[in-house]
Design a protein around this nucleic acid. Structure first.
Lengths: 214, 214
DNA sequence: GTCTATAAATGGATAGAC
DNA sequence: GTCTATCCATTTATAGAC
């Protein structure tokens, strides 16, 4: 139905698609490297030379794909955000809306797994140039709004059914969950070498939702 | 009693002491500027030029006081550590050893106050050159050990009297308290403009010790 | 010890050939 | 689009006069 009705073309669709696939695959490799480096050392300490070296291409080639270091990092942030949104989709399909607390715990667990896998970018400091780039990046802002809205709904639902502290403003809960995604405690405990990743996540999850007190 | 019994000296003690005071005051001003900048933008983003500009002296003069940027930052970290130790001293004098949980909460509150005052250095990323400098800095390591030992004693005491979760390893509690000192949630909530500093600290303290759950 | 001036190295970004 | 080579601004650190 597609090819049969098309006139001959100078650039056959299949070839163009192949090129696009190659292009996307290359960009995906770049974004993966950026993502890893952002998680490992943060935006300021990450250099474009390192990215190029890790991908195995020249630095000038990087700039054919992304116009600046900020755009490079923003692309990685957007991808993580979209991974999160996809996970929220899965959760909505596989779990009950009657257990909003369970969903929130599942999200927190997922973010910690991502961090222990070395794939959670450390958040840029207040006045980083990356911050400014992110606030003007529609994909990022839209993604963040979407995630916040969906988590916000679960938070208020969990507060309504009494499984979450009703005294806390929903925004405080939301920010706490975001912060736990980058919680350095995971790295500290990992560095101690005393616990498995699962043990670490379980401990941090308990302290997050049940607190330190006995 | 001092000057009367002393022979004439080429450099009178009073003058030398004055010079030393000036020297220490200048270094204190330098460390304060570094401390503020470390809190504001982190080690990587902080430049020595900025430090010199904020202190109001030439960059070359800075290097007469501290041999490198790492030593500059380490001095600020040591000072914060010593402020913490002094606060622990105060706590031991003004509170009861029968309430170790109260002491732990007081420490957590203090660290959050310091952070909201813009005086808590953000912790350097894993492989920062500052990390290496700190691990070989005896003053810093000794101070960190001291704080960890004293907090560790309170933690085990609080677990013994049932006010702190006994399932959690003491080291997990300790690391959690360290992490809360740099918790980005404080900055998030502050940036929202919805709450006073006291309200923010109360909320984060509650979530830290009582958890998010209802 | 403080300054001006500068060295030495790094890092973001681009030119231009292919 | 990829490469080599380079530009240019920034940054750490130092030289040398006072």
């Amino acid at each position: 139905m597609t090819t049969a009705t098309l006139k001959p073309q100078p650039d056959p669709p299949v070839r163009r698609s192949f090129r696009q696939q190659m292009h996307l695959a290359r960009e995906d490799a770049i974004v993966s490297a950026v993502n890893r480096l952002l998680a490992e050392k943060g935006f300021e300490a990450m250099t474009v030379d390192e990215v190029a070296a890790e991908v195995g291409i020249a630095k000038a080639s990087l700039y054919k794909h992304f116009p600046s270091k900020e755009d490079l990092a923003a692309a990685a942030m957007v991808r993580v955000m979209n991974r999160a949104r996809a996970f929220l989709d899965d959760l909505e399909g596989s779990t009950s809306a009657d257990d909003p607390l369970g969903r929130l715990k599942a999200v927190a667990r997922w973010t910690m797994e991502v961090q222990l896998a070395g794939e959670m970018p450390s958040l840029p400091s207040e006045n980083s140039t990356l911050r400014a780039a992110l606030t003007t990046n529609k994909d990022y802002v839209d993604g963040l709004m979407d995630v916040s809205d969906r988590l916000g709904a679960w938070i208020t639902a969990a507060q309504a059914n009494g499984s979450l502290n009703q005294q806390l403003p929903a925004i405080a809960v939301l920010y706490t969950l975001y912060a736990r995604a980058c919680d350095p405690v995971l790295g500290f405990l990992k560095g101690s070498g005393l616990y498995t990743d699962d043990q670490i996540i379980d401990m941090v999850l308990v302290t997050c939702f049940d607190g330190l007190k006995g």
